[in-house]
Amino acid sequence: MRRIDHFNDPAAPRATSLKPAVSAVVLDAEGRLLLIRRTDNDRYAIPGGAQECGETVAQAVVREVEEETGVVVEVVSLVGIFSNPAHVVAFPDGEVRQEFSMCFRAVPTGGHPRGSSESKEVRWVAPEDLRSLDIHPSIRLRIERGLADPTSPYFT
């Protein structure tokens, strides 16, 4: 069984947990977006994951991006805070987590793209090519906000 994202689904299970998570809109010098293809749901996404005890959100972003993509980044600004209770994720162990993700903009500073246990593909994608990819609506919103006005953080 894999994780199942429920978004605006009246039949979705009720959330049983809420955990701080981070994600990153990483753009290279050519304006391409760093994407992973997730191993758990086969969709494209921006890198991210849960914040761990003892680290700041910026440290969590750097760690998660490098773990999932091999790319080292520097966090440069906040995209927004995404906490829509209509987005829950059901995990194989029975946990149902309400979305709570802090999304940041970041720039690559080193490393080399490579897959991981969480990402079967890592690629740089031009913004105009995003429409053809299978991306969950909640991730598309983060991408849209990350590519938009960097002076006004988004929040739900």
Rank of each mutant, 00 (worst) to 15 (best):
G94Q: 04
F104I: 05
G115H: 06
S101P: 06
V122C: 00
T16I: 01
P150Y: 05
A60Q: 07
G110S: 03
V72A: 13
L141N: 06
I143V: 11
E55C: 02
L147S: 12
S119D: 04
L34Q: 02
M1S: 14
L35T: 07
E68A: 04
A90Y: 05
L147D: 06
T156S: 15
Q98W: 05
S77C: 02
F91P: 02
T39Y: 07
R114K: 09
R2Y: 13
C103N: 08
E67W: 10
A60H: 03
L147N: 09
A15P: 02
V65T: 02
V79A: 11
M102Y: 14
G80P: 12
S132E: 14
A90Q: 14
H6I: 03
D9W: 08
T39L: 00
V122A: 06
Q59I: 07
H136Y: 09
D28K: 09
P85T: 01
E66L: 08
P127T: 08
V122F: 08
S77K: 04
S138A: 12
V88G: 03
C53K: 12
I143F: 10
D129V: 02
V71N: 03
R38C: 01
S17C: 12
V62P: 00
L78V: 13
T151Y: 10
I4L: 13
I81Y: 11
P150L: 00
S119R: 02
C53L: 15
F155S: 14
S83A: 12
T151F: 13
E55A: 03
E74C: 08
V96A: 02
V75W: 11
E95D: 15
P92G: 13
E99W: 00
S23T: 07
H136N: 12
L130E: 05
P10M: 05
K120P: 03
D129A: 11
G115W: 00
V96S: 04
E118F: 14
R43I: 07
R105T: 00
P85E: 01
R145H: 15
S101F: 07
R43S: 09
V88N: 02
A29C: 08
A148K: 06
E99Y: 01
G48N: 06
R145Y: 06
R131S: 15
R140H: 02
V88Y: 04
A86N: 13
H136V: 13
D40M: 07
D134K: 11
G70K: 08
I36C: 10
S77F: 05
T109S: 11
E118Y: 07
S83E: 09
E64Y: 01
P47V: 07
F100M: 15
E144N: 14
A126S: 15
R123V: 14
F155W: 15
A58G: 13
P47R: 08
V22A: 00
V26A: 01
R43H: 13
G70N: 07
Q59A: 13
P108F: 13
S101A: 15
P153E: 09
R63F: 04
A21W: 01
Y44W: 14
A12W: 05
A50Y: 10
P127W: 06
S101E: 15
S101Q: 12
T69F: 05
H6C: 04
R37C: 13
E144P: 02
D28E: 07
F100I: 11
T69H: 01
